[in-house]
């Protein structure tokens, strides 16, 4: 159980696919013009990730090594198409926002990456928790980027006006350069915080050593 919990938490932060591993970079850059589309894209990817990880983990013994990549791709593509159809039928408004990017989940290397690196070696239950963690990590990352870009680029958050009429929209944030700038600055900030914390830990460890040394 502890391992399962760890799977989820790991995907959310320590090995966050977008901010730490920097894989599957197309959606974070392309569909995050608003918080809403980031959130929906993240959830759609999460659904595909969990489904494909489950199936791949279930049949890992039956799929021969030599053809595992084509088989995984077909499985992933099937789920993506299914989700695309379901979205189109049930939540057309959402489907419209995401447009071409839903079919493109197929080529998101996050999903194939997890299938190859994790699901194909682990029991089903852990494949699911890993998919959940990675997916949710991906989702919050996309939503976060979307929030920043929407806030600065349009003055709104999830469609609700945040800044008043006096606000001048930063148009660049809604255009592709805005995605790169936001992404870069977030990764920069995370690394900065990470480095500072590591330095503190090192210092603490060194002090500890000194104390231990004196005692000895």
């Amino acid at each position: 159980m502890q391992k399962h919990l760890d799977d989820v938490v790991r995907g959310l932060f320590r090995e966050n696919p977008t901010f730490r591993m920097l894989i599957g970079m197309c959606p974070p850059l392309a569909v995050t013009t608003s918080a809403e589309s980031g959130l929906i894209m993240g959830l759609a990817t999460t659904a595909v990730l969990i489904c494909s990880s489950t199936i791949i983990s279930l049949f890992k013994k039956l799929i021969p090594q030599q053809v595992r990549i084509p088989a995984y791709i077909v499985i992933i593509a099937t789920f993506v198409t299914m989700i695309d159809l379901v979205l189109a039928a049930l939540v057309p408004a959402v489907h419209k926002i995401l447009g071409i990017f839903v079919p493109l989940i197929v080529v998101n290397c996050l999903i194939l990456g997890r299938a190859e690196a994790f699901a194909s070696r682990m029991p089903v239950s852990r494949a699911i928790t890993d998919g959940l963690g990675m997916g949710l990590g991906f989702t919050w990352a996309l939503t976060f980027i979307g929030c920043i870009r929407e806030l600065l680029g349009a003055g709104t958050l999830f469609g609700a006006t945040v800044f008043g009429d006096g606000f001048v929209a930063w148009r660049i944030m809604q255009l592709p350069p805005g995605a790169f700038l936001t992404m870069g600055l977030i990764v920069f900030t995370l690394n900065l915080v990470g480095n500072l914390r590591a330095r503190q830990l090192q210092k603490a460890a060194r002090n500890q050593m000194k104390v231990v040394g004196k005692e000895a």
Partner: peptide
Amino acid sequence: TLGLVAAIS
């Protein structure tokens, strides 16, 4: 195997 995967899909 591949045929089966494709057919089910």
